[in-house]
């Protein structure tokens, strides 16, 4: 019975094949032709691109090809890190004719960074925003800013009631100013959300992104309760003379489109003992930065002597950014 069915199936097929033979040959020929055209066309396009230099010089291309296959930063050995840094520096030399220095300094075990913002002292000058944009090589075309200053009316404390888009003489009567940026949470929801572990919390408290590992799914952006993260929707454009040459692999090195980035407490500066660009730029001294583990630091003085609060504390994210009033 089974054999009969099988044979009947076979006969059907043969009938089909015979009646369709002329059509089948034409179809086969068409498919063959189309495939070979596609391959030839693809080869021509690639060759044309290479010839025109659209892919850059072949050395830069080869370096970028190697960069594509590199592993996650945390899994790299020191030698691999040095190799990727030298590749990136070489690519910058070839493609932008620029000498940059990419640092890979690790965290110090004695340090846990903390930040305090004096709401009484901020006058809304936005010098911090400008300094941050310059220091961290942020895209000028889309006006990306890690810091956002909110103009708040007296009587409310939550920035979602404030105006982040003001542009007039400051300070305005009856208003005060407060700035938000990534708060480097101690229990970061963005780290939990990332599907590729491209973002993590360093031992010194900074939440960093391995830009080349990020696939750009933007789940971390949905997970952040403070609007701390930015995405490169377009290829970043920075005027050549404004590019900061001293970079850190996890910090202000130049990103390409399609990756998520955020404030890193100026990791390229702070791991060398310097203040963040925003803290240094503030003319009124509204920003206090330091080591939370050092009992003599200014940040510890603020936490112990001032009335401090954090935003959205009820979410349990444990941000390391406090606000206080004089």
């Amino acid at each position: 019975m089974a054999q009969n069915i099988f044979r009947s199936v076979k006969i059907d097929k043969e009938d089909l094949m015979d009646s369709d033979k002329p059509k089948k040959i034409n179809r086969r020929a068409f498919i063959k032709g189309a495939a070979s055209t596609a391959i030839a066309g693809g080869a021509a396009v690639t060759a044309g691109c290479k010839g025109k230099g659209l892919l850059g010089s072949s050395e830069a291309f080869a370096l970028e090809f190697q960069e594509y296959f590199k592993t996650h930063y945390r899994l790299m050995t020191q030698i691999e890190r040095e190799k990727t840094v030298s590749r990136l520096e070489r690519i910058a030399r070839l493609k932008q004719d620029m000498d940059i220095k990419i640092d890979t300094t690790g965290p110090s075990e004695k340090v846990l960074y903390g930040y305090a913002f004096n709401v009484t002292r901020c006058e809304g000058y936005m010098e911090c925003v400008q300094a941050c944009v310059k220091e961290n090589n942020l895209d000028r075309k889309s006006n990306t800013q890690y810091i956002r200053i909110f103009e708040m009316e007296h009587g409310q404390m939550s920035p979602d009631q404030g105006d982040g888009k003001y542009f007039h003489m400051v300070p305005k009567e009856g208003h005060f100013y407060m700035g938000v940026q990534c708060f480097q949470c101690d229990n970061p929801p963005c780290v939990k959300a990332c599907p590729t572990k491209a973002t993590w919390k360093e031992p010194d408290g900074i939440v960093v992104v391995d830009y080349d590992w990020c696939i750009g799914c933007r789940y971390c952006m949905a997970a952040c309760p403070y609007w701390g993260r930015r995405f490169n929707w377009n290829q970043p454009q920075i005027p050549r003379e404004e590019i900061t040459r001293k970079q850190h692999y996890l910090g202000n090195r130049q990103r390409v489109r399609g990756m998520v980035e955020k404030c890193t407490f100026c990791i390229q500066r702070t791991r060398k003992g310097k203040l963040t660009a925003c803290a240094e730029a503030c003319p009124t001294g509204a920003r206090v930065f330091g080591n939370l583990l050092d009992p003599d630091s200014e940040i510890r003085f603020v936490l112990e002597n001032k009335k401090v609060y954090r935003l959205k504390e009820d979410l349990g994210t444990e941000p390391k950014f406090w606000y206080f009033i004089d």
């Binding site: 300094t105 110090s108 004695k110 340090v111 846990l112 903390g114 101690d186 229990n187 939990k192 791991r271 060398k272 003992g273 080591n291 939370l292 583990l293 050092d294 009992p295 003599d296 510890r300 936490l303 349990g316 444990e318 390391k320």
Partner: peptide
Amino acid sequence: PAFSGEAGLASRIKNATQKMDKKNQVEA
């Protein structure tokens, strides 16, 4: 991790009472 409570950051800061040398907090 939700059940670990507030024990994390606040107590870590409170317990860091040992005086530090100003010079060697970072390797720079």
